[in-house]
Design a protein around this nucleic acid. Sequence first.
RNA 1: GGUGGGUUGGCCGAGUAGGUCGAAGGCGCUCGCCUGCUAAGUGAGUAUAGGGGCUAAAACCUCUAUCGUGAGUUCGAAUCUCACACCCACCGCCA
Length: 414
Amino acid sequence: MLDIKYILANQEEYAECLKNRHHDFDLNILAGLDERRRKIIGETETLKAQRNKQSRNAGENSGFDPKAAKARIKELDTELAEVESELHTHLMTLPNKLSATTPIGNDENDNPVVRTWGEPRKFTFEPKPHWDVAEALGIMDFEKGVMLAQSRFTVLQGMGARMERALVNFMLDLHTEKHGYLEVEPPFMVRSAILEGTGQLPKFAEDLYKLQNDDLWLIPTAEVPLTNLNRESILEEKDLPKYYTAYTPCFRREAGSAGRDVRGLMRQHQFDKVEMVKICTPETSYDELEKLTNNAGEVLEILGLPYRVVNLCSGDIGFGSCKTYDLEVWLPSQNKYREISSCSNCEDFQARRMALRYRPADGGRPRFAHTLNGSGIAVGRTLIAIIENYQNEDGSVTIPEALVPYMNGLTEIR
RNA sequence: GGUGGGUUGGCCGAGUAGGUCGAAGGCGCUCGCCUGCUAAGUGAGUAUAGGGGCUAAAACCUCUAUCGUGAGUUCGAAUCUCACACCCACCGCCA
């Protein structure tokens, strides 16, 4: 959520941002609502001030009619609630502003490549898609996933399940021991207000799984509980930045992605992810974004998986983000780079929604913190990348050296 | 699921026969004094949000709201009434 004052004071600039995001909305609606809101507040507060003055001097006859004032205040309160609710609804569904370094563009084809790491391997045979390799090895069973749940669910077993677990441990160890993140195990279900805090609600309910009998939703990413850890509080500047990491499963309905990546482990309703979240001051958030992105990239580098970093353009970037770097890993069977991590600076967009503030070291008024999140990284897709990049002609898969200790010394799956 | 207790400021914690209570006290924090240093001691200050005024913007001034949430009684509610939510304890059930 953006500050209504910011929007109205920078209406042209924000209108341009909406256009670049392909978001159609007439900002004059907000200006009108805000004007009504102020007018109502002005009138009620005058009445309340008169009423308070009168009751302080109980008995004095000033000609003020408290009964009439009370009735009018009630009327105005009702009206105000309506106006504020409408205003709030609009503000909650308007996207974040854009960083000056976010490129303008229409879709993913306009995302500039920031850097590339590693050389895609030259195969002496035709590399197979991961689902063929994994099924032949007996480490993934796609039919059983469908049998137990529905499509876009998969059963991992044997060394497939083992490598999934090994990757989680490897990533968490890296982020906690080398990068200074605090490991967290959060709830995998959260209340509606928590999802409003990070921006998934109210706008994207159809992407989420909701429990039937409770106000609880399955988390689509650990970003949700991690970022909300300090909601509705005022942190001290000296305690910033805060770095959190968590392994959690993620649950997404994938509404609207029918037909995309239907085969294999690429796009599942349930997948594992190690997430990184940062809470910091406005002055440092863009430096923190660079570091965060590097933390994610390091996972791929240690595993020896070629990747590139792209800067998401205005037409492709997410609702709550000012600037996002996507990490894309090389998949030989598709002969292209595919998203495996997304690192975003949300500035104060989420913080304002969840009342996450900090008190500046100089003791001034509380300010909204900046929040960042990034995958560190998507575990299932890492498994895909390893299987595809490390596959051998005989159908076996070599285990990346860094992962061998986590696989109890196993060097290949065959 | 049953019974009982609870929800107050950054934190802890007083305050219910309704009236300057935004709220005692403590901790923390800020500034000063004291002090070889630190600690201790000591004096003062220290909520948040919103509206209006002033301003280039602040500072500042002023008003309004906020003692779990919502509604009610009243000239006036942290204090009374009702509903709801959440937390804690014990019992039951259970990984």
